[in-house]
Amino acid sequence: MGLAGGEIRMKALVAKIAAAAVVLFARAITAVRAIWPEEGLPSRPCVYFANHSSHGDFVLVWAVLPPRLRHLARPVAGAEYWLKSKLSAFIGRDVFNAVLIERERENRTQDPIELMTTAIDDGSSLILFPEGTRNQTDARLLPFKSGIFHLVAARPDVELVPVWINNLNRVMPKGEIVPIPLICTVTFGNPLRITPNEGKDAFLERIQAALLALSPKPLGSGE
């Protein structure tokens, strides 16, 4: 009994140290800077939704959130990817306390929306990537999946905060193993909410536009 308790505490300690190390490394490489919205961030649990181009995306969002809000925030990530090995399962589950959802509809054992609403009901915020997969195309955003709509349809009071992560895809493009140090910014927009009777397509279009509005203009375009 005592041993098992000690082991759990040990694991929690290692997870804490690992989280601090990952955040420190991310900061050293990207000098990441947050740009906050005029209205400020909601202090109650909310859903941060961001563009997705790198496995490090949620780390940057997590790293820039003020500690008070960071402790509430849980990334939503694909179970297939994060449960592949013991190490990634440890990082996903123990270090970042991710809400792991199964993406393949056919083999699902748990409903992703239910997992997310449970997390919100427990007082957590979510970091969500509605594109569903990493964007490797030249388009700035992939069309959003409908999960985020079903989530707020079930919890209409929850606020949605758009988050644009800039430059991280250049730090470590797909297939590279050495990151290039580049300055990244994470821009938070004003919180949004679903309006009564808003349809799925209109809602998804509105929040995609809110996210795109945060993306900076391309470099070298002058003034």
Partner: peptide, 10 residues
């Protein structure tokens, strides 16, 4: 160098 490379055409 990190600031500089952030702004160039790579």
């Amino acid at each position: 160098l990190r600031e500089f490379v952030t702004l160039i055409n790579t």
